[in-house]
Amino acid sequence: MSEFEKFKVVTRYELLKQLRRKRFYGGLGITVLAVLLIIGLYEGLNLPAHMGIPERYINEYGAEIFAMCATSMSSLAVLAAVFFSGDAIAGEFENRTGYVLFPNPVKRSTLVIGKYSACLIATTLILLVGFLISTISVLVLYEEVPIGILGSLAIALALACCIISMAFAFSSALKGSMGATIATLLAYMVIFPIISSSLAQAGYTPWFMPDRAADSMSATYDIPLEEVFGGWMRGGAIPGMVQASEDPFTSFCVLLAYAVVLLMASLWMTNRREMI
């Protein structure tokens, strides 16, 4: 039996595990609720007008601006990815399930990659539901679907890959699943933004930071962001905030690079970790 066959077996059963967990359905419910809330409030409160977006831009980019808001799911991508992945490796050691799983003729790297794939598929399912609702909404309301939605989805998936890898790295290094989950959330939601904001304030463009790369989800619609959102805040947008998310392809590559490097780190640590 080849390692690829074993990888398929691991992915299949790990996915079955994910789909049996309440957190999958919780994540799905929260996603649906969040997207519906964004769409409802956007339309119900006529948000573009309150955001100071000039009328001509609303007329010209109405569908794109709506789609951009409706698909702003970076937080959901992060949360879904973290909750599926935080316990992927650490849980095997912490919950002692590794005593059954590891003494099998399968490489640990195959187990890790199989688990990774299952987490990614579960996260993708949740994101796809969110994007599907957003796409249907924009189609119903504006009778068109901006192609930028696909770019936004691609960046959301790259972000999911990055976060899953980060959670796997922490999960491989730390004793507990909760610790790995919290460490991932802290890194992405506290540490990285501090570094990114500091760099932006100092005049550097933090295009290489994952949190800023994730902001590019809103830059895939060919909307002149600086002009459209320039009036949102007094004195215009924060320097570096809009410019940092101007190149979706670079951001996509940055997120994938983090995903690859962190997954490699996770593989290395898991291979070395002892089932003590």
Partner: peptide, 18 residues
């Protein structure tokens, strides 16, 4: 090497959802 083994180490746990 371990393909020849059937093992029961400590008190193992199983995935509760399966």
């Amino acid at each position: 090497a371990i393909s020849k083994l059937g093992t029961l180490i400590e008190t193992p746990e199983f995935y509760p959802f399966l």
